[in-house]
Each structure stands twice: as C-alpha cells, then as structure tokens.
Amino acid sequence: MVSAVFHSPLEAHAALPPAAKAVARPVATAAPVALVPMPRVPRDFRAVWLRVLPPVLGFALLVLVWELVALKSTTGFPSPLATWQQALTVFSDPFYSKGPNDQGVGWNVLSSLQRVALGFGLAAAVGIPAGFAIGRFEFLSRMFNPLISLLRPVSPLAWLPIGLLVFKGANPAAIWTIFICSIWPMIINTAVGVQRVPSDYMNVARVLNLSEWKIFTKILFPAVLPYMLTGVRLAVGTAWLVIVAAEMLTGGVGIGFWVWDEWNNLNVANIIIAIFVIGIVGLVLEFALVKIATAFTFEEVKQ
C-alpha cells in the first residue's frame, strides 16, 4: 500500500540542496517609487530691483529738481507737466511741412541724421585706411602724428568758417564740420590697433612671404576690427554732438536749427523737448553701435 506524504512549502525548501535554494529563492518585488515634486526656485527680486529701481530714482530726482526750478522761476520756465502736454502736441504731427523753415520735429531729426551720415561716411572712407597706413608704416606714423596731435584738440566749430568759405553753402559746411570732427577718433584707434598686433603674427607673415593684401585681409583687419569699431562709436557720438551746434550757426532744416528757432520764439518747452529728442537719438545710435561692436569683438577686448 503506497501512502502519499505531503510536505509544507517551507519543509520542501529546506530539503533542497544549496544550489537549488539559490535558484528557487523568491524574488522580492520592487516597492512603488513615490514621485517627489521638484522644489520651486524662488525668483530673485533683488536683482530686478537693482536693475529697475536706480534708473527710476534717477529720473524721479530729475523731475523733482525740474519741478522745483519751475516753481522758483520768475521767467516762465515750463514745468514737467506743461512740457509733457506740449510734447503731445509736437509729436501728434511730427512730419508736417509748412515751408522750408517751418517743419515738424521728425523732418528736423532726419535732416540732421542725413548730414551726420554723409560727414561720418566720408570720415570713415578717409580715416580708416589712413589709420591702417599710419599704424602699419613707421615712416607715415612719424610723418602724421605731429599733425594729428596739433589738429585734434581744435574745436570742431572752429572749422565751420573754413567750410563756409570753401564750400559757399551752409549744408556742405555742416557736413565738412562733421567730417573733420569724426576723422580723428577713427584714425587714432585704427592706428593703435595696428600697432598692437602681436609681432608673432607679422613674423609668420614674413616667413610665409605673404603679400601686403594678404597681410591686411588675413592678419591686420581681424585683429584691428575691435579697435576700429571703438573709433567708429566715438566718432558717431562726437558727430551727433557737433551737428546741433553747427546747425544753430548755419540754419536750415535740422534739430539744431529747430532749437535756435524755438529760442527766438521764446518757446522754452520746445527747447526742452528738443534736448530730450537729441539725447534719445544719441542713445539709440550708441546702443546700436555697441551691439555691432560686441558682435565683432573678442571677449578679452570687450572688458
């Protein structure tokens, strides 16, 4: 008679050999992983305040001083509110034209920018190649450095009568004044950039027997570009400063003439508006040229 013997699972596992026990060991199931939310990074409001608050306080201080001057003035100096109301009227139609001497502020700004562009363009066409030549050749540097040192400190407006005498016209004389005041920063900065090119670069050019054109395009121009753009930026800023004074003396259409004409009409509010317009246009020109210079400038030269 055969009897069946039944064993419990624990007894059966104990009866297995060690190798079988390792194979038959039950696999532990992984516990479910709880999703922990990522902590939120707090916003740095302090950095925002450091960017926004100081300029706001600066403009608020300007308006406060302006208001105090207007309150104490006995000559009808316009307050900030009165100037703002006049600005709304001026900019409601900035491009009106009622004759050669009565045009909106938009036409005056465009006319001044046109003169600056012509004078600056001529200065760049002459000054940048001259700077490369003066920096590249020692003979030319010794020849022209005394002349540059003599003529550079002369006030740009001192050249205006020469322009009136030579060109027999107010508009060419103003362009000539822009030209003569813009050329010096471009010549000097470009020449300094050429002179600061590492001598190893030039030694390699001599070893490779490169032509002067190859030296200019492959070595000098890339190395001098940051200095050249710095000179361009300084020249544009100087040109925009000078054109206002030149137009006051020469007349015609332009932001400088507009300021002088409003002074003759005793319209001080429009003069203050013109001051802000001149500052904003100069700021835009400076910002645009800084962006261009940053795009083509090496990091070590930017700082």
Score class of each variant (00 low, 15 high):
240 W>G: 02
172 P>M: 00
126 V>Q: 13
70 A>W: 08
9 P>V: 11
283 L>R: 06
265 N>I: 03
25 R>A: 15
109 V>K: 01
18 P>K: 12
294 T>G: 15
33 V>L: 12
192 V>K: 13
231 G>N: 11
83 T>Y: 05
246 A>N: 00
136 R>K: 08
238 T>V: 02
129 P>M: 13
238 T>W: 06
33 V>Y: 11
33 V>G: 10
191 A>P: 04
239 A>P: 00
201 Y>Q: 09
130 A>G: 13
152 R>H: 00
257 F>W: 11
214 K>I: 02
280 I>Y: 04
44 D>W: 11
12 A>P: 05
15 A>F: 05
107 W>I: 02
115 R>W: 08
255 I>L: 03
104 G>F: 02
80 P>D: 10
254 G>V: 03
204 V>W: 06
301 V>Q: 13
77 F>M: 05
173 A>K: 03
293 A>C: 11
165 L>I: 13
181 C>G: 05
261 D>E: 14
247 E>Y: 07
93 D>L: 03
232 V>R: 02
91 F>P: 02
207 V>E: 10
42 P>M: 06
13 H>D: 13
106 G>N: 06
181 C>A: 14
32 P>N: 04
25 R>Q: 15
72 K>P: 03
74 T>C: 01
15 A>V: 01
85 Q>C: 02
67 E>H: 14
63 V>G: 07
126 V>H: 13
134 I>V: 12
153 P>C: 01
76 G>Q: 06
109 V>E: 07
43 R>M: 10
